[in-house]
């Protein structure tokens, strides 16, 4: 009797468990898992118009000779290596300052610094494009303050165009990351800091020996999130460059051409080659996976 009821309990668990997840599983199967696998298959084919033929790994070999791809790879890495550390350090500094209860108006500062994170990527990018125009707001201010003599060609010079993207992204995402750190800092008991204070540790020492190690899991989380975000960078370069989607290059001398923009171009701007575009997209997958593993290892996390 008991055995029978246990059996039917398991059956009910099974049936309802699958019922509740079934809608999501079907949708994810069609719109997530299938595309991921199909994309892997596509990466071994070549499509020109409607003709599709298998080419094995030729696409992957072709990558190394493709100047556009190499430019996109280089640009994406420049943004990743420079922007992510600057932003995360700023976020960390702001969070540890705002976690100090003796700071006045903490709530106001926190809200204000988080505010950029509510803007849409396209809206803020277009806003920055206007602010950084040649005789625009930023140049006017810098010239009035006598920091520069001549206007900086923000969006017309490859170097400055990249700087603009980095400034813009830092504006948009610093407060967002700061909130993660703040919630992490709240979990560190005050007693640890008090004990350190008694032992005569300076604020800076406390930061390096208490705050940083305790926040490690969240730092790893935010840096992986930022890695994924940066490698998918699309809205900003597309909307900062002259002519946007229809422009002849992405940024001056393709200085803003990123992997995602290149994939988009391969599919919808040039003569469509879905197979080769899928190959480039799998390079992104590979890089994200590798960088995530490296970041986990660097942090010494086991999970």
């Amino acid at each position: 009797m008991e055995r029978a009821s246990k059996k039917s309990f398991i059956k009910i668990q099974n049936r309802y468990g699958w019922f509740f997840v079934s809608f999501a599983l079907v949708l994810l199967g069609i719109f997530l898992i299938y595309p991921i696998l199909n994309s892997l298959y596509l990466s071994t084919t070549s499509t020109k118009g409607i003709v599709q033929k298998s080419v094995g790994l030729t696409n992957y070999v072709k990558l190394f000779k493709d100047q556009m791809f190499l430019t996109a790879l280089k640009n994406t890495f420049i943004f990743f290596i420079i922007q992510v550390p600057i932003m995360l350090l700023l976020a960390l500094a702001l969070a540890s300052i705002l976690n100090d209860k003796s700071i006045k108006l903490r709530g106001v500062f926190r809200t204000a610094i988080f505010l950029p994170a509510v803007t849409s990527l396209v809206a803020y990018t277009v806003l920055f494009k206007m602010m950084f125009s040649l005789d625009g707001f930023i140049n006017t201010i810098l010239m009035n303050l006598h920091i520069i003599k001549d206007p900086i060609p923000w969006l017309m010079h490859p170097f400055w165009a990249r700087v603009t993207v980095i400034i813009a992204m830092t504006w948009r995402w610093t407060g967002y990351n700061m909130v993660f750190y703040l919630s992490g800092l709240q979990n560190i008991p005050d007693e640890i800091y008090e004990a350190a204070e008694i032992d005569g540790a300076s604020k800076l020492q406390q930061f390096f020996h208490i705050t940083l190690p305790m926040l490690k899991p969240i730092i790893v989380f935010t840096s992986i999130m930022s890695t994924i975000g940066t490698l998918q960078l699309f809205d900003e370069p597309m909307n900062l460059s002259q002519g946007g989607v229809t422009g002849s290059t992405t940024g001056p001398g393709n200085s803003l051409l990123t992997m995602s923009v290149y994939i988009y171009n391969l599919c919808f701007k040039f003569m469509p080659n879905f197979g080769y575009a899928a190959t480039v997209s799998y390079v992104v997958v590979f890089i994200v996976a590798t960088l995530s593993i490296i970041q986990f290892r660097l942090a010494g996390e086991r999970k």
């Binding site: 997840v21 599983l25 994810l28 069609i30 719109f31 997530l32 898992i33 299938y34 595309p35 991921i36 199909n38 994309s39 596509l42 994924i228 490698l231 998918q232 699309f234 992997m259 995602s260 994939i263 988009y264 599919c267 879905f274 575009a277 899928a278 480039v280 997209s281 799998y282 992104v284 997958v285 994200v288 996976a289 995530s292």
Partner: peptide, 23 residues
Amino acid sequence: SYAIILLSMMVPFAALMIPLFRL
């Protein structure tokens, strides 16, 4: 199945875009 789903969160949208568009 939960683990597979979570893992797929790591895959950037660019990699789904093409098959998704054709679908």
